[in-house]
């Protein structure tokens, strides 16, 4: 288990380092000087040279990458060239908003999706099961930003039930809750469908297994069989799916943060891209990649911890 953990972590570090190197190479390969693009067509050569130096672009590529990693180990993600603030402060200032949004959305999807999938599996091939099946697919396919636009149009602009922009007043919990309902719905809707389908499929598989038949043969109440023996196993795959789905969640969060003008890492990336602020782009893409790698690793480990069969095979 320990060996597996070390191997996974090492792989995660290698992947993150490769990803950063790839980004650096892309910046380097692309025609046009980033400093020149940032400053606009009327910048003087001195200004461009100064900006290049501030962005660290005047060094050869390998040195740039080494410097970046060197700074990274000291927790320094570089400086924002426009506001002159440390990138790490900006990214970690925005990260809690995104995490809070993602976890609310997933929580919301689990509360609705898992019971729905369980119900569908227990009432297989009934009308409700079929309707749930079709609705689940529909939920999965509709892009998050379209759901975000519609929820904004219907619940914020037309009905005025929820606020349209921002994340709510600092320290005012209820205001923040009111602000998160629509964005969480926009991200969570496709996950309701996804989890419902997944739980239905794995529930059907589990219900056909020997230990369930044995539990029934012992005369245990159906409630105990379903909840204690079947559902406990059937929700296992959702852990992996949520972990691996972190990338989708971050992408959906980006769109949602833009539509609802919410602070967050997605909005930070988008804003820094529109202003061509490369250090901030690098920093925030790096942090979201790390987040993604951590969550996939964690989901593997949690899965191994929950499922003795996987644990013993490690």
């Amino acid at each position: 288990m320990l060996f597996y953990l070390i191997k996974r972590l090492a792989l995660g570090v290698v992947i993150v380092m490769l990803a950063v190197t790839l980004l650096f190479c892309m910046i380097h390969l692309v025609p046009g000087d980033p400093a020149r693009i940032l400053l606009g067509p009327r910048a003087t050569p001195e200004l461009i040279a100064g900006m290049s130096a501030r962005m660290g672009l005047d060094q050869p590529l390998p040195i740039q990458i080494l410097l970046f990693f060197g700074n990274l180990f000291r927790g320094d993600l570089g400086m924002d060239v426009i506001t002159n603030r440390p990138v790490a402060d900006m990214v970690f200032g925005q990260l809690p908003y995104t995490l809070w949004l993602i976890f609310t959305a997933i929580g919301f999807a689990m509360v609705i999706g898992i019971p729905l999938g369980c119900y569908s599996a227990l009432h297989r091939n009934t009308l409700i099961d079929r309707v749930t099946g079709v609705l689940s697919v529909a939920c999965i396919t509709v892009p998050a930003f379209v759901v975000a636009l519609y929820s904004l149009l219907i619940f914020a602009v037309t009905l005025n039930w929820f606020p349209a922009v921002g994340a709510g007043e600092q320290g005012n919990f209820w205001d923040q809750v009111r602000h998160i309902v629509l964005p969480a719905l926009a991200i969570g809707l496709s996950w309701i469908g996804y989890l419902a389908r997944l739980v239905r499929a794995s529930m059907l598989e589990v219900m056909g297994e020997n230990h369930i038949r044995t539990a029934r043969a012992y005369g245990l109440p159906e409630r105990v069989v379903v909840f204690r023996y079947a559902l406990k196993l059937a929700v296992l795959p959702t852990v992996t799916v949520i972990g691996v789905g972190m990338g989708f969640l971050l992408s959906a969060a980006l769109f949602t943060e833009i539509v609802f003008a919410r602070p967050g890492i997605g909005k930070l990336i988008f804003d820094s891209i529109t202003t061509r602020n490369y250090p901030v782009v690098m920093g925030s893409v790096l942090v979201s990649t790390v987040l993604f790698v951590i969550s996939t690793t964690l989901s593997d480990l949690v899965n191994a911890w929950l499922d003795p069969r996987i644990r013993s095979s490690l």
Binding site: I15, V16, A19, M26, S251, L254, I273, F292, V293
Partner: peptide, 23 residues
């Protein structure tokens, strides 16, 4: 496989945005 894993470790939209920002 390492390259495949690296590409998959970028959230697609973030990767797209970073590329668009550059190109």
């Amino acid at each position: 496989m390492l390259f495949f894993d690296t590409i998959r470790s970028f959230p697609t939209v973030m990767f797209a945005l970073a590329t668009v920002a550059l190109v």
